[in-house]
Simulated assay, not measured.
Amino acid sequence: MLEKLDFIENKYDELSIKISDPTVMANQKEWQKLCKEHADLEIIVTKYKHYKEVLDTIQTDKEMIQEENDKELREMLQEEIKECEEEKLNLEEELRVALLPKDPNDDKNVFVEIRGGAGGDEAALFAANLLRMYTRYAEKQRWKVELMSSNETDIGGFKEVVFMIKGKGAYSRLKYESGVHRVQRVPDTESSGRIHTSTATVAVLPEVDDVDVQISANDVRIDVFRASGHGGQCVNTTDSAVRLTHLPTGIVVSCQDEKSQLKNKEKAMKVLKARLYEKAQAERSAKISENRKSQVGTGDRSERIRTYNYPQGRITDHRIGLTLYKLENFLNGDIDEVIDALVTTEQAEKMKAMGV
């Protein structure tokens, strides 16, 4: 581990010199790339320098104890060594985590797609609950939410809703939300008070740059049509809605929430690129990202990553066996406790696989 950290520190020092070089700064694209790499390494290097300072303190204190005759001072030094040893262990654990391979998409914005699964109207209403939950979470993180497309039901649910969350680190936090979410509750329409089980599927896709995915104009069929459902003035009276069909893969994306056909096309193209990027990632390595169908499942009641049980006020994440009795707070966007647990579990699995 120390060899890796020494290499990173040397790399960081080299980058510090490069990004201060006027000739490098003249090429803005290259300079920005180096600045990002420098910033990514800075957290590790700062922690490593602090780690070395702690080691030096331990070594110095041990030498002083050998030479010191004052009992009180020796006790103070021993206490400081004890504290430094604890800090050393904590820093070693933090450095191990910092050295784990980073997902290149972690800092990116995301597209979140929610679809009602098994359960009809109740599933669509649950999809609306999830939309509100993620919107509240984004607000707490000071991220921006932008609706891309939606298919709303008459009673306020969603058969499908796609939205974008813009904010640094959005994908690193929300990528764990992909899968089937199951709800157990008594619907308002249920007169006998019987608990129903419904599902909604969630897919979280990183936004991709043009350099990541290139789409030939000949590969995309563009259809325009009149928007339906709830919309603002003029939305439902002109052919502003856009449907993109990627012919080689059969992927279809629709967007109708903007009054402008051009804006709808731009939004739909962003979502299409994200889906194509995810598909390519899945084909390259199933370990990195499962394909779309396996990511969100079929929506059957038996498939789930998490259960929301209203009668018990309980949330259970089945991947890590974590149960919390904070349903109301969770649905109001307080989901960090579960996400933190998922992050910790993934880090532990990576360290085990790497033998760290």
Rank of each mutant, 00 (worst) to 15 (best):
63 E>S: 09
235 V>A: 10
335 I>V: 14
229 G>V: 06
190 E>V: 05
33 K>G: 04
346 E>A: 13
321 G>D: 04
236 N>P: 05
26 A>E: 14
340 D>E: 13
300 D>P: 05
120 G>S: 10
69 N>E: 13
80 E>W: 03
240 S>G: 06
274 A>F: 00
302 S>F: 11
198 S>V: 13
100 L>I: 12
313 G>Q: 09
322 L>D: 04
252 V>H: 03
166 K>W: 02
163 F>P: 00
136 R>K: 15
239 D>S: 13
27 N>C: 08
170 A>V: 06
41 L>Q: 12
252 V>Q: 11
114 I>N: 00
127 A>Q: 04
167 G>P: 03
122 E>Q: 01
117 G>S: 03
302 S>K: 11
104 P>F: 05
328 E>A: 14
290 E>Q: 13
345 T>W: 15
84 C>Q: 11
94 E>Q: 13
124 A>E: 07
283 E>G: 05
177 E>L: 02
253 V>I: 15
216 S>E: 12
144 K>G: 03
247 L>H: 04
302 S>I: 10
85 E>N: 05
52 K>D: 03
189 T>G: 07
340 D>N: 12
193 G>V: 02
173 R>Q: 11
298 T>Y: 08
109 N>S: 08
214 Q>N: 09
239 D>C: 07
171 Y>K: 01
96 R>Y: 11
118 A>L: 03
273 K>H: 03
60 T>M: 13
225 F>T: 07
117 G>L: 05
118 A>S: 13
15 L>A: 07
253 V>E: 02
266 E>K: 15
309 N>I: 02
171 Y>Q: 00
172 S>D: 14
1 M>V: 09
331 L>S: 04
226 R>S: 08
57 T>L: 15
153 T>W: 02
45 V>I: 11
55 L>R: 10
129 N>T: 12
166 K>L: 09
79 E>Y: 00
185 R>Q: 08
196 H>Q: 08
294 S>D: 14
83 E>T: 06
288 I>V: 14
307 T>N: 10
265 K>F: 07
117 G>F: 02
